[in-house]
Design a protein around this nucleic acid. Structure first.
Lengths: 235, 235
DNA sequence: ACAGGCGAAACTTTATACAATCTTCGCCCA
DNA sequence: TGGGCGAAGATTGTATAAAGTTTCGCCTGT
């Protein structure tokens, strides 16, 4: 009777169908199947999931609040297109929050969690070996979310979910080269530090991991609104 | 032409009426006019604002995402009732984020911002002198939001808005004594440090300010679900 | 040939109607 | 008298229809 009346994890209410829509669209965006700027028509999505526009709209509004969908009045919903400024903010926030999260994860370490982390690492390696880029991208984000869940802090978890989703779009837009799923080795190092309950090392490894990801980005500074035009032309 | 097509600050789309509803309810909660657990009926609110349930529902869902309203399936929306665990998480997050924010604010200092901060301090003092508890509570939160706006980081600002709103509920629920609006003096000290561009002092003052606020709370740890019963009886 | 404007189509926004669910109150029975 | 069953009322969840806005094509005038 402890966890009965608490459907409060992330989405307070929402019928199951709204959750399905939201998670479906989120997964598509995180796996880079939906590209920034893509129009997300209400009828279109509603037909796919067999739901009316009311539910689609609810899901899209939630995604807009998470920052991965941008809703323009009287024009509809689109996959968000983070600016370089957004990207810098997202990674600064991650550099601030994630070391703290991993520190809490060290405090919460248990055989069950170690098992889950190891399982995740092997999933990541398997997807990478299989050359499944979409799964690799998704799992790479899931690793960070897993640690946030492990920390037990629901607020940090909520914040991080948002940051991870935005990061996925940012990486897609601004990565220099088509470097493969970069982080699996770093992830393994972090897990090792967590297992040893070495918070200091875990924090440091997380921080350098984030720095390396950001270092691979090319965040061109828009001289003026010139950039906005160039972006539209590029799409 | 710079800030024309960017309704993106916090609420991505939403017609003006939804904004009005959301801000009206938010203000009522932040000013402690709506107490935790209060039922927020859709028809009731809709009639007050002259809007249909569709718009009310949109606003309530946004507030639920911000954590100050809790929506229970088939039962409706209520003003959220943060648990002591929630309270600890909120203040831990604030201790992590706000010193960083104030640091950025120091970098962004300008005569215009100093004027705004001074104006805000005088507003706070005036409300306190007037004995207007509601305005004091609201302004106390606005101070932190103002600094976040000053920092120019939209992500931190969004996170902090959420944390401030939840803090207001937490303080209402768990404050030990009816201490008056505690922070005006601390706020003045922070402004002074910002004006001197002394980031180190500003960070330290912000941190101790948050610690003092949390120290005034009595976060009783629920032995079991015993607490939940007590809460309901108290309401 | 091209710029400007008119008009229809598609879409979003808002409102309303219907269905499902929960709460409440009254009644009956033990 | 206390508890449980059940129907009425109220409230939310969902779908559909009406209203408003944008967009795109086409047509006309220069």
């Amino acid at each position: 009777m402890a966890a009965k009346s608490r459907p409060k994890s992330d989405a307070p209410d929402v019928s199951d169908r709204v959750i399905r829509i939201r998670e479906g669209v989120t997964a598509a965006i995180l796996e880079h199947r939906l590209l920034p700027g893509t129009k997300l028509g209400e009828d279109e999505i509603g037909e796919i999931y067999g739901a009316s526009r009311t539910l689609v709209r609810t899901a899209l509004q939630q995604l807009a609040h998470e920052g991965i969908v941008s809703i323009e009045k009287n024009r509809g919903a689109f996959v968000a297109r983070p600016t370089p400024a957004d990207a810098r903010e997202v990674f600064e926030a991650r550099r601030l929050i994630e070391p703290t999260i991993v520190d809490h994860a060290v405090d919460a370490v248990s055989p069950t969690w170690i098992d889950r982390l190891q399982q995740h690492l092997s999933d990541e390696r398997e997807a990478e070996a299989r050359g499944d880029a979409r799964a690799s991208v998704r799992l790479s984000g899931d690793f960070h979310r897993l640690i946030a869940e492990m920390s037990g802090h629901s607020i940090y978890l909520g914040f991080l979910k948002e940051l991870i989703a935005r990061s996925s779009l940012i990486i897609l837009l601004y990565r220099r080269h088509d470097t493969p799923a970069c982080g699996t080795d770093h992830h393994a190092g972090i897990v090792t530090a967590i297992r040893k309950r070495d918070g200091e090392t875990a924090r440091a490894q997380m921080l350098s991991h984030l720095n390396e990801i950001e270092a691979e980005l090319f965040l061109k500074d828009p001289a003026e609104d010139e950039l906005r035009l160039a972006d539209v032309l590029g799409a």
